[in-house]
Structure formats: structure tokens, C-alpha cells
């Protein structure tokens, strides 16, 4: 839905991180993406490949995506269930009083990076 703009936000965060930590190159980026975050992971990967060619810091960066399963909690029967399979209605007691526990994330988990040479010497 707005995968390309999310890629630009990831890049901005990494630019700042590279500046702070004197990084010359990013080798990989691991993202955690929730199943119901609205982000299409295959489309996200295409946006990443398009964007990184224009961005020197990221040009060799591999993208790893870890999908976080979506889990919903029912306030009435206090049970958790899989969101993607059952949606908003609790499969145990058919209550609508449910909320998402996890599955809406879009986090940068970790990166692999090289430091600038002058930094390594000092």
C-alpha cells in the first residue's frame, strides 16, 4: 500500500545511524513485519531493490524480512487466537470484544555494517 514510502523511512533511519556510528556501508538489513501491518512483503522487496540502487549506503544491502504472526486476544473468554484465520470475531466464544496483541509491527531489527576505515584506525 505504501511500501515505497516505508522504504524511504527505513533509509532515512539508516542514514542517521550511519552518520552517528561512522558506517561506510550496510551489508544487510533485517526487518520485522507483522502479518496484518498492511505491508506486502514481496512488493516491499521490489521497492527495496529499486530504491537501493539510488542510495550508495544501501547499494549492496541484502534485505531479510521476518514475519511476525498476528495474534488477537478476546477480552470476554481471555483466550488468544490467530488473527489471519479468524479475524475480529473470537472463534471460541464468538465475541467481538477482541484486540490485536501483535502483528501490526514494522520494525528495523538489526543491520550488518562496515565502519569507515579512519574510525577503525582510531
Amino acid at each position: 500500500m505504501h511500501e515505497l514510502s516505508i522504504v524511504t523511512h527505513v533509509a532515512k533511519t539508516l542514514d542517521e545511524l550511519a552518520e552517528e556510528n561512522h558506517l561506510s556501508k550496510i551489508g544487510s538489513v533485517t526487518l520485522e513485519i507483522g502479518e496484518v501491518s498492511g505491508i506486502m512483503t514481496d512488493y516491499f522487496e521490489e521497492c527495496w531493490d529499486y530504491f537501493k540502487r539510488k542510495h550508495p549506503l544501501l547499494k549492496d544491502a541484502k534485505l531479510y524480512i521476518e514475519v511476525i504472526k498476528a495474534v488477537t486476544f478476546c477480552e470476554d473468554c481471555k483466550q488468544e487466537y490467530e488473527t489471519v484465520e479468524y479475524g475480529k470475531i473470537c472463534p471460541y466464544c464468538h465475541s467481538e470484544h477482541t484486540y490485536l496483541v501483535e502483528g501490526n509491527e514494522c520494525n528495523i531489527k538489526q543491520i550488518e555494517a562496515e565502519e569507515k576505515e579512519d574510525q577503525q584506525l582510531s
Binding site: 531489527k109 538489526q110 555494517a113
Partner: peptide
């Protein structure tokens, strides 16, 4: 290459 753990939301810099 060194590994840097971030655990940051993508929208953190915008926030």
C-alpha cells in the same frame, strides 16, 4: 561487518 541491533520502529525517526 559488525551487527548492530536496533529494534526501532520504522516510524521512529518521523515521530
Amino acid at each position: 561487518m559488525k551487527v548492530i541491533e536496533l529494534h526501532k520502529t520504522v516510524t521512529a525517526s518521523n515521530d
